[in-house]
């Protein structure tokens, strides 16, 4: 009976060693480089494309930050599911709300 009790219970094992100093430094330098790029975009006149370009840079930055600094790349499926849920539900919020703002002036009758 008692040997059952002492069985370790870990359903989703997400254990991983923290990133090495070299890897963290590299990530930081890459993020800082992208920040420089974001600044350069901010100080140039790209017209309507500017917001999309700068959001693209921000997304890459965010992705690198999440994957490497927040160590999502070593995380288990559950953590990935959690992170994806956040992205997906934010997407839903934007999708329907902005659809309203972009289509409200079309009349059905």
């Amino acid at each position: 009976m008692s040997e059952h009790v002492q069985k370790p219970i870990v359903f989703e094992d997400d254990h991983a060693e923290p990133a090495s100093v070299a890897s963290s430094t590299l990530t930081f330098l890459f993020l800082a480089g992208l920040a420089c790029l974001a600044m350069m975009i901010g100080f140039t006149d790209l017209g309507p494309a500017k917001v999309w370009v700068s959001l693209g840079v921000a997304s890459v930055q965010g992705l690198v930050l999440t994957l490497f600094f927040m160590d999502l790349r070593h995380a288990d499926k559950l953590t990935w599911l959690t992170a994806m849920a956040a992205v997906f539900w934010t997407f839903l919020l934007f999708l329907f709300t902005l659809t309203d703002y972009l289509t409200r002036h079309y009349y059905a009758f």
Partner: peptide
């Protein structure tokens, strides 16, 4: 055991961050 505790703590923070994403979202 310690692994269960560590996994719970880590997962709890990730779930909390989901709410934060939606908050700023």
């Amino acid at each position: 055991n310690i692994r269960q505790q560590q996994a719970s703590v880590r997962f709890g923070m990730w779930v909390f961050l989901v709410t934060e994403v939606l908050f700023f979202g």
